[in-house]
């Protein structure tokens, strides 16, 4: 099952999105929050992200959901800390973080492959709300 990592500048945002996504997931679905800095401040930490990716991987790869700016830079930096095998199986979804995370988790929990999980997460960009 594809794992999902949520990278936000805010620990609360990442954990809140994880909680919401858990409601939609299979019991064995890995969803790891990587939000904020070690000191509790606002920001993103590439090492925390790389550890989260390792924890989220059960062999089928990991979809990473990001919020703004440096979340993308930190995630791309985190990819450099991974071994090559895992690096080939992680991808950032170009999607809104909350809607994308929930869509990704629903798709991943069905047992879909990484490409399908990313595509579904990115589909959340056009989700109509009203």
């Amino acid at each position: 099952m594809v794992g999902v990592v949520i990278v936000s500048h805010s620990q609360k945002v990442a954990e809140g999105i994880r909680e919401m996504a858990l409601q939609m997931s299979a019991p064995e679905q890995k969803i790891i929050a990587a939000g904020g800095m070690a000191d509790g401040g606002i920001g993103t930490d590439a090492f925390q992200v790389s550890e989260a990716i390792i924890s989220a991987n059960t062999g089928d790869g990991v979809a990473v959901m990001v919020d703004l700016g440096s979340a993308v830079l930190s995630t791309e930096t985190a990819f450099e800390f991974l071994d090559e095998e895992l690096r080939a199986k992680v991808q950032i979804a170009d999607a809104p973080i909350l809607e994308g995370a929930i869509s990704a988790v629903v798709e991943a929990s069905l047992g879909s492959a990484l490409a399908a999980v990313i595509a579904t997460a990115e589909g959340a960009r056009t989700l109509n709300k009203c």
């Binding site: 500048h9 800095m37 070690a38 401040g41 606002i42 920001g43 993103t44 930490d45 590439a46 090492f47 925390q48 700016g69 440096s70 830079l73 930190s74 791309e76 930096t77």
Partner: peptide, 15 residues
Amino acid sequence: LISSVGGAAGPLYGT
């Protein structure tokens, strides 16, 4: 710097 800056400057200057 990568692990402690927090903003975009962390990965950029860190790299």
